[in-house]
Amino acid sequence: MRRYTRTLVAAALATTVIAGTAGWASASAQQAVTGAPAGTEAWRADGLPDPERMSPAQIAAFFQGLTPGRQRELVRAHPSVVGNLDGAPLRLRYEANARTLGARYAGQQVLASDPRGRGQIVLVHGDLTTAESVAVIVPGSDIDAGNVRPLTDMADALRRATHGRTAVISWAGYTTPVGVGLDAATGDLAEVGAERLTRLTDGLAATGVPAPSVFCHSYGSVVCGLAAQDLKAKDLVVFGSPGMRAANVGELGTSARVWAAKDPSDWIDRVPNVEFAGLGHGVDPADPAFGARRVPADDARGHDGYFAPGTQSLRTFAAIAQGDVR
């Protein structure tokens, strides 16, 4: 009976979204990528500490105890591990990922890269060590290493809106849902994503990077909601959100400021804000009763228009990232 009920609710959610977007539903379930980076077995075989047993702070301390020469030896011998260790020095991670990826991302600062599944990629726009402020953008469905352009477009727009003063991380660092289907209606992928996002911010803190403002789009806001209690962030900004798996800001358990935006033409408004039998993501964060600070978005267009040049939402996002609004 429970399985039958879940199927009915999932069908209702998918039908509602499709009706509102002329979109499609994916019947293929995604398997979340978990565990240590590729190449970890060889790393362990060399007598190096197990990454799965170390926090980002411990990883940072391990690298601080190595000479510069030894650090570079590890980059050469184990690039796929070093490039994905939250807490390792940023310059080493960039160098390691450049070795692993070759010409594909030439000239870009790649903070993490995982070829498993559909592929994951984390890109840095700007200098994390000198920027006045830092932002992380967490995407929703369909974003992966092979389809990262919509995410990097948002990052570039935010960089321009802050006149280059904010370093922005495009975080395609978790397995996102594909299309609109059961994966998008449940929190399974978001739970794994939340763990990975938490390690990202722990790693930034361990390497001296200021606490970021985290911008969470669509299903990415489910990830942020589940991560909120442990996330080292100064702001959580959700937009086009189906819910954060919390009834109100207080239930998120975060000291970060929580902001929400939804434009009137966003099809996400047609998704029922319910949570039943593990399906749906709960209260709309843009509902005043949720308690989030409002981001004006009346001139944004559709589900993906919040970073469009000249919009109130983009101007406010830039102000939030720079700490110019209270």
Rank of each mutant, 00 (worst) to 15 (best):
A246T: 08
A297F: 03
P296V: 03
Q322R: 14
F290Y: 02
G119A: 10
V138A: 09
P177T: 00
F290A: 08
G282K: 13
A161C: 11
P242K: 12
P89R: 12
T16L: 14
R315W: 07
A103V: 02
G280T: 09
L90G: 03
P177W: 07
K234Y: 07
N273D: 15
D304R: 15
A205W: 04
D153G: 10
A11V: 13
L189Q: 10
I143D: 09
H78R: 01
Y219T: 02
M54T: 03
Q71H: 06
I137Q: 00
A261H: 02
V271G: 09
T130L: 04
F62Q: 02
P309I: 07
L231E: 02
R165K: 14
R104D: 13
Q108S: 06
T201R: 04
L48R: 10
A22M: 03
R72C: 07
A38Y: 07
G126K: 00
V136W: 08
A300Y: 00
K234E: 12
H163E: 12
G193R: 14
K232F: 05
A27V: 15
I121C: 01
A228I: 01
N147W: 13
F239I: 09
L182V: 15
R116N: 01
A184K: 06
Q322C: 03
L189Y: 09
V258K: 06
M154V: 07
R293H: 13
P177V: 05
